[in-house]
Every structure is written in structure tokens, then in C-alpha cells.
Amino acid sequence: MCLGIPGEIIELIPGPADLATVDVVGVRRAINIGLLGEGEVRPGDWVLVHVGFAMSKIDEAEAAATLALLTGLGQAYTDELEALAESDIT
């Protein structure tokens, strides 16, 4: 229900408005980072942007883990199935 796009924090904009510039493949916009914890994001961090606000900091380790799982899933699951099939036979 809510379009959220990953963007990279380019710079924090000084001032009371809690703003930062994000880059989405070359498209830049000032967004509000006030919904994140104080000092939670720095330039180079990736955030999820929704209606001009950073909603969440993207966890790069978790992102890699999900992909690794997707890649590894095939093999692990095939092995498991084979084991299951064998145990059924005996």
C-alpha cells in the first residue's frame, strides 16, 4: 500500500528540519530523516524512502543474507527432499 524506494544518503542538511539529500540512481531529493533515531544514518547509508520521509535504514547484511538464502535455497532444499525421500523408502 505504500511505495517505498531505496535511496542512498548523500549528505545531511544542517538545520532544525532533519533533512538529508538522497540519491535514487541519479535522482536527488531532500527527504526528512526525523523518523529515524538521532545519528542513525550517515552519508553512504541506504534508507527506504516513502512520501519524502526515510522510514527505515536498510540493513545491508540482512539484504545480502536474503539473497544468499535465495541462492542457497535450491541446493539445501534439494538435499533435504532427497533425504526425506530416502527415509520414506526404508
Binding site: 517505498g4 526525523g34 523518523l35 529515524l36 533515531g37 527506504l48 522510514m55 527505515s56 536498510i58 540493513d59 545491508e60 540482512e62 539484504a63 543474507a65 536474503t66
Partner: peptide
């Protein structure tokens, strides 16, 4: 939680407070 890269199990406390 499949979406661990974005969703913390406990959500965003600051957003809930606001």
C-alpha cells in the same frame, strides 16, 4: 519476517511516538 533488510522486528518506535 522475509523483509529483514528493511523491517525491524520491533518496528520504528520513533514513528509510533510521533
Amino acid at each position: 519476517n522475509q523483509y529483514t533488510r528493511v523491517v525491524p522486528w520491533d518496528g520504528n518506535r520513533r514513528a509510533l511516538e510521533v
